[in-house]
Design a protein around this nucleic acid. Structure first.
Lengths: 339, 339
DNA sequence: CTGTTAGCGCTTTCAC
DNA sequence: GTGAAAGCGCTAACAG
């Protein structure tokens, strides 16, 4: 690669000082038109661009924000990131993304790396391993230093930092309620282990909807998916005895797998079993039948997250931490009976 | 946010020089044990971290690589990015991602931004708009300066830079060939407009497979999808007169939509029509029936891309541009008849 | 053992 | 009109 062209080199070329070149390139009126034109032409010819690292060192800000997410091959997260990108770009920032791969170790390293001055602020969604370990010590320094931080979706309530979450309880409540409305008597819940916060929140909504109608929860209708084992087989157990007439699954994958397994067992969707998922991804629309689902508005969420962070970064005073809840809505497709 | 702690401040605190502090924190044996311990304890207490911007300015490298992709809400691209992340992290680099959103303008701005010293090298997959305009002038400066650049998937053959591509022709050939093998006589192709390189390459493979058997191509069996119009309706036209007994679609979405539409028209999959898609995403496995598809190995691709780039960055000499072709394989599921 | 100095590329203030 | 100098935070060669 060719050595980069710098102000210094241009200055030497024209036998003027560095500051003259700097001013000339900025079009300053202090410099003679003639010299300005010559310098600008030369700079263009050699593709001069001010070294952003030097500029950043100068004004002590990077105009970059860091994002640490568990995964990117996941429709919800990539949608949120799109929202973050859009908003940050609009306000003159760039985005640096690191993946934790659901690993505590990688999450810690990513955060460590980001907070050495690489970025002006940080957006994090916590990894599953971190949630399982319940160890958040790697955030302590950030919090003590008042480093601009926004958490989204998978958050920890004990932190005083900005948070943006989906109304998981409400979404699950609405979904379950809808199943109840269309006449389901035995609604199964397919969810994650309890330590995954979104899973337990959605379970809460599911329970609430039952409670509100004075219905009790049948623990046998709830399956917690163990991700290390085969998904289909775990779900199949639902249909062995006392099969449900409604299923609420905490994500698309579980929902569609449940539909497919149910159909294998001879159940018709939605005639015998109505199914609702969470997260409106590509699978929902293309599944057979198209899946009724709780829409999460990831893009909106991303924009909100970015807005919160940038406001904090650019604010003079210390801001009080905020918590924003993004509400969901139920997108009714063909996997649920109509009333 | 609290002001960042610097060597200078620590130096003042202990009334020693900056370099003493620097050495102490590095554990240099030049410094007395006593002083080292005091300084290190102090630094830890105040969360001192060397400012990476200053370090980067110093050694003239950022240890960051930039990635410009059209989209991230797309299983293939996010898989590739995962591969890139994995490989670069392993070698001590971080990744900065920008989205072009399939826009020429944004692509140009992203590249412009990245080449101001923010990153040591660049990975790009070209946007659709750029391909349509066929204007690649925003890469000229990079190429002239010998800036480390690797293109993947959507590449331009006229550039002399490293490239990693999928064997689109071969994959499409195999897919079409398989349909022919199982007895299909009239194979429809659902593809993109010609300017999308991967689309036209896959068409080439489709044609090749026919030619090899001395079969001619029926232009009526080929539909080019116009993305601004309704997908389902465009595909439905296939089934009006002379319906196909095989379909090869250049992506998952087209394939699954075709299956769904075909079924609506009363065709059975795979008994009446066998269908093959391209890209092995989440949809393929969950569709009904599960889709036979050309597997792209995005993760492997990402690793290769990163490897190529890092080798170039770290190499002393000028390397000759390489072109790596990642071969595909056919994953046979239930959407195609068995022989 | 500790300090001085120069320099990375750039901006900005102040002299000339 | 042009240039000199300081400084952003850090490293490293060299001096004491």
């Amino acid at each position: 690669m060719k050595p980069k062209i710098t102000l210094k080199k241009i200055a030497k070329e024209f036998e003027v000082s560095i500051s003259t070149v700097s001013k000339a390139l900025k079009g300053s009126h202090e410099i003679s038109v003639e010299l300005k034109e010559k310098i600008q032409a030369f700079a263009k010819l050699y593709h001069y661009k001010p070294n952003s690292i030097a500029v950043r060192l100068q004004n002590q800000q990077t105009k970059v924000i860091g994002v640490v997410v568990p995964d990117i091959v996941h429709h919800f997260f990539s949608t949120v990131i799109r929202g973050i990108e859009e908003e940050t770009n609009k306000r003159g920032y760039s985005v640096m993304i690191c993946l934790s791969n659901e690993s505590y170790e990688k999450e810690m390293m990513n955060i460590e790396m980001f907070t050495n001055g690489s970025v002006d602020g940080l957006i994090v969604s916590i990894s599953k391993e971190t949630q399982a370990k319940n160890d958040y010590s790697h955030f302590n320094d950030l919090l003590e230093d008042g480093f601009p931080l926004v958490m989204f979706d998978r958050v920890n309530d004990n932190f005083k930092c900005d948070k943006v979450i989906i109304d998981d309880v409400g979404g699950a409540f609405n979904a379950t309620n809808h199943l109840l409305d269309i006449g389901c008597k035995n609604i199964a819940l397919i969810t994650t282990p309890r330590h995954v916060t979104v899973g337990s929140l959605r379970r809460e909504g599911y329970e609430k909807a039952h409670l509100k109608r004075g219905m009790s929860i049948n623990e046998n209708s709830i399956i917690e998916i163990n991700e290390t084992e085969d998904l289909g087989e775990q779900i199949s157990k639902l249909f062995i005895s006392n099969p449900p007439d409604g299923i609420f699954a905490v994500n698309e994958l579980y929902a569609v797998t449940a539909m497919n397994r149910a159909r294998e067992k001879g159940f018709r969707i939605p005639d015998d079993i109505s199914v609702i998922g969470f997260t409106d991804g590509p699978i929902s629309q293309l599944s057979l039948p198209p899946l009724t689902t709780v829409v999460q508005h990831g893009f909106t969420m991303g924009k909100q997250v970015a807005e919160l962070l940038l406001n904090r970064i650019e604010s003079k005073e210390e801001l009080e931490p905020q918590k924003i809840v993004i509400s969901t809505n139920l997108k009714i497709r063909k996997s649920t009976k109509s009333i």
